[in-house]
């Protein structure tokens, strides 16, 4: 039973990590002029978009996340690989968190004069990614090799 739960948790962690890359990591909702609809500035693992305009050189945070998720899946066979995958995912999440925290603050400070009612914050992708890290370490604890 413990073996099945461990493997299911590993698969869930990998799926959550990959799924998170398609969700917003950070969002800025801003009215560029009074009375206009809000424009969204959204960063995901695969793109950075301001309204309908895509940043052609937006950072591809999804790549290290997908690689860590692949290590997690490979860890279904070896505990230490699963453990390394979980740690790599935690490293990605930690560094991404530091970047996003500052980017959100930058967006807020830089645009507050344009729209005092702007909304800037973390997107759901970050929380799904954090959940994936927790699931991954949970899976390591229950790993069948142990």
């Amino acid at each position: 039973m413990r073996k099945i739960v461990g493997l299911v948790l590993l698969a869930l962690a990998a799926a959550a990590a990959v799924g998170a890359t398609f969700l917003p990591f950070s969002e800025l909702l801003i009215r560029l002029a009074p009375g206009q609809p809000q424009t969204a500035y959204v960063t995901t693992g695969w793109s950075t978009q301001f309204g309908g305009t895509k940043d052609e050189h937006g950072p591809l945070f999804a790549i290290p996340i997908v690689l860590a998720a692949a290590a997690l899946l490979a860890g279904a066979r070896w505990t230490k690989v699963a453990y390394a995958g979980a740690a790599a995912l935690a490293g990605v999440t930690g560094m991404l968190f530091v970047y996003l925290l500052n980017a959100i603050s930058f967006h807020r400070e830089g645009n507050i004069a344009i729209d005092p009612a702007l909304e800037a914050g973390f997107g759901n992708g970050v929380w799904v990614l954090v959940s994936a890290v927790v699931l991954a370490f949970g899976a390591v604890v229950l790993h069948p090799d142990d």
Partner: peptide, 13 residues
């Protein structure tokens, strides 16, 4: 292992 793998992930970002 945690430190090295975590650092690989952080450097990936």
């Amino acid at each position: 292992l945690a430190g090295a793998a975590g650092q690989v992930g952080a450097v990936g970002v």
